[in-house]
Design a protein around this nucleic acid. Structure first.
Length: 734
DNA sequence: AGCACGCCGACT
DNA sequence: GTCGGCGTGCTC
């Protein structure tokens, strides 16, 4: 009996009491009694009564709370499931402490496959015996031939393979020709073969791959930043680290931003390893979800490619984590538990004592600084290989080359488009703004359409005939008359969205086939896939898209990329604005580049002298990053300072404002506190709730968690409506 | 997070 | 007179 478990007297029997973490925002694990004769080790998944219902939970470590014996209830079931491994339990504790989130809510993310706690049901199958039927028929003949391979067959599978009806099989079974056997269900994916089809690597790649192989062979914690321009073959390089880990019989997690988790990536993996990796993302069918979860826990699946939530899968023997596109903001979760999966991957690796690789063509400043200061190893791939050629980049100064009145495409860009279309090649127009126009106003009285819930401008979506709020999801039909002065048909659309750019492109090139791609496209991911295939087959001439086109998809026939408004996003108050813009421009221009063709990137801007534009046009990434790093250093922003973002949310705006004021008052002066209003709240804004975001920054080495805790304690105490995101690279905590 | 309990407005 | 809104409190 474990030393730390307590016993309580209950009638005649002493019952063993264990702490159980349940998927609920309680500060500590609850205590439950083990049924007589039952054993449960830490990590075991159990079912416990909670109020009127049964919930899953994880038997936790350490002592149990002193709890009223009358309240104590019994564990209802100990699942026949591998216990959550100790490093994973420490990870849950760590994330809970770091994000100031109750541990139960973090554990909840690890328990998101309820049906997986029971073993997968065995499959009923049939195997041929020595017995033979009394009478032979043609159908029976075929069945015997088919099943003669000595393998077990399922009843329907065999009937299908032999081209007979299932009743033929039943007849044979009745005569003892088959015996029933039970099989373990097959793995969700075939085992990857590390030696299936190794890529031919260029010298630079081979060197980096060798370094990663050596890192994996250390079987110890390390972080490697794998940094190389688009087309330099990062994926092939980290595939070799995966191969090495698979050879050692350990599991691999590949994290990808959800949008980059495409069939194209899985196919690439398949080509290298002869099998696909298991997938993990929000759209996975429940049945598959459960299989992947269970098989990860049983070490029956060796490579999982997943979105950020895959970090909370209960791997039995994780040996390597890859974080692809490590700079991608999609790694941030700003909902319930606030975390950055890239940083938490580093922590997970530290706690499991395994290597991790952060890969990107445009690494985040945090990761670059960590690499420069020696906390991360740094592998750089400089050259492009094969025929992949990046486009020539040219800035288009919009002050000198102004678009025609009411238009947004400069004569320079229009000319380049005409030439591209003339050559029967494709052009991509990029504008990071959905809808038709970001602002609608009344030409008579000047009324602006604002969101009634969060006071940001309503974006016109002309195709849907709606005005939408991009912050909280509020939508209303576009009216004919101004709601303020009642004048009919005098509403003016101000500024461009992609729908409006499509209209303009159509006007200039009426014969061109135009495709518009954005996340709010009708038809969802399926439609998106179809459109992407059509584009790859050359069934479109002009593609117009939001940042959706910057990620994960390649356009092999594209030879022109036009950035409609490169300044968008440079002045939104985000301390990462310049970095984000640089990354986005790199990603989107990197999409183009037809083998053997000259391609061109035209960046429309009003600020050609801006460091981002200058660095981008001259291709001097290093200069840009050095400058940005310096800016951050002076501004005491991450990674040199620490940033905590406290989200205040409440059902009513008044309540949220009160709490935000209280928090601001509680913060000591000189802490560098920024308060951003509801318009700057995250896009994940819950419909109908109001959120404020407070940004606090402090110096490196300061206990920000402690500071925020203190501040929260001094401020008002709203119930369940404060969420804290501490936005610091976790390295200093390791 | 769920769920029950409990107190004030418009209706079969 | 009830049905039902969501504010408050509790779950080992």
């Amino acid at each position: 009996m474990a030393k730390d478990s307590r016993h309580i007297q209950d009638g005649l029997f002493a019952r063993k009491v264990v702490p159980v973490l349940i998927p609920m925002p309680a500060e500590r694990a609850y205590s439950y009694a083990l049924p007589e004769g039952q054993e449960a080790v830490p990590g075991q998944i159990v079912q416990v009564p909670l109020g009127p219902r049964l919930v899953p939970g994880i038997v936790w470590d350490g002592d149990t709370d002193q709890v009223d014996p009358k309240k104590l209830r019994e564990i209802a079931q100990v699942f026949d499931c591998p216990p959550v491994a100790a490093p994973m339990r420490r990870f849950i504790d760590w994330v809970s402490g770091y994000t100031l989130t109750p541990p139960g809510l973090v554990a909840r993310m690890a328990l998101r496959a309820p049906a997986a706690f029971d073993p997968e049901p065995m499959i009923d199958a049939l195997r041929l015996t020595d017995a033979r039927p009394e009478r032979m028929t043609a159908a029976r003949e075929r069945v015997l031939e088919q099943a003669g391979d000595g393998l077990a067959w399922t009843r329907t599978g065999l009937a299908h393979a032999a081209g007979v009806s299932a009743s033929v099989i039943d007849g044979l079974s009745a005569q003892g020709v088959f015996e029933p056997v039970r099989l373990t269900p097959p793995p969700v994916v075939a085992a990857p073969d590390p030696d299936y089809q190794p890529a031919r690597l260029e010298p630079g790649q081979a060197q980096a791959a060798e370094a990663l192989r050596a890192t994996v062979a250390e079987k110890a914690f390390s972080v490697t930043l794998l940094d190389g321009v688009t087309g330099s073959g990062k994926t092939e390089v980290y595939f070799e680290a995966i191969a090495e880990t698979v050879r050692a019989g350990r599991q691999v997690l590949i994290l990808l931003p959800e949008i980059a988790l495409t069939a194209a990536f899985l196919d690439r993996f398949h080509a290298r390893f002869g099998a696909r990796p298991a997938e993990w993302h929000s759209e996975l069918a429940p049945r598959m979800r459960e299989k992947v979860w269970r098989q990860a826990a049983e070490n029956r699946v060796s490579v999982v490619a997943g979105a950020r939530s895959a970090l909370f899968l209960p791997f039995a023997d994780l040996g390597l984590i890859i974080v692809d596109e490590e700079h991608d903001p999609a790694y941030k979760q700003e909902d319930r538990v606030f975390y950055n999966a890239r940083d938490m991957a580093v922590v997970r690796a530290r706690l499991a004592d395994i290597p991790t690789v952060l890969a990107s063509a445009t690494p985040s400043i945090e990761s670059r600084v960590n690499a420069e200061q020696g906390r991360y190893r740094h592998l750089k791939l400089d050259s492009r290989y094969a025929e992949a050629v990046l486009p020539d980049i040219k800035l288009v100064d919009l002050r000198r080359h102004a678009p025609a009145r009411g238009g947004f495409l400069s004569p320079v860009l229009l000319k380049a488009m005409a030439e591209t279309l003339e050559r029967k090649e494709q052009a991509l127009l990029f504008l990071n703004r959905r809808g038709y126009a970001p602002l609608t106003l009344c030409r008579v009285c000047g009324h602006r359409f604002e969101c009634p819930d969060c006071s940001s401008w309503l974006v016109e979506h002309r195709f849907r005939g709606q005005l939408q709020c991009h912050h909280c999801g509020h939508a209303e039909p576009t009216p004919q008359a101004c709601p303020a002065c009642g004048t009919l048909d005098h509403l003016a659309a101000c500024g461009p969205g992609i729908e409006r750019i499509a209209e303009e492109a159509d006007r200039h090139f009426p014969d061109a086939r135009v495709i518009v791609l954005s996340s709010d496209m009708m038809g969802g991911t399926r439609r998106l896939r179809i459109e992407l295939e059509a584009i790859a087959k050359g069934e479109a001439d002009i593609v117009i898209g939001t940042q959706l086109v910057a990620k994960g998809h390649n356009f092999p026939l594209m030879t022109l990329v036009g950035v409609v408004d490169a300044d968008l996003g440079l002045s939104n108050g985000d301390p990462r604005a310049a970095e984000r813009t640089y990354q986005l421009l790199s990603q989107v221009t990197g999409r183009a580049g037809r083998a053997g063709h000259k391609s061109l990137g035209l960046i429309q801007t009003f600020q050609p002298q801006h460091p981002v534009m200058q660095a981008f046009a001259s291709g001097e990434a290093e200069t840009f990053y050095a400058r940005e790093t310096d800016e951050r250093r002076r501004a005491h922003l991450p990674p040199f300072g620490r940033l905590a973002s406290v989200i205040v949310s409440a059902a009513t705006r008044v309540e949220a404002e009160t709490h935000a004021r209280g928090l601001r008052a509680a913060a000591p002066p000189g802490q560098g506190l920024m308060v951003l209003g509801p318009a700057e709240a995250p896009l994940a804004l819950i419909r109908g709730r109001h959120r404020f975001r407070l940004l606090i920054h402090g110096e490196r080495g300061r206990d920000m968690q402690g500071f925020v805790r203190e501040m929260l304690a001094k401020g008002p105490k709203p119930r369940g409506s404060l969420q804290v995101q501490v936005d610091i690279d976790p390295q200093s905590f390791l």
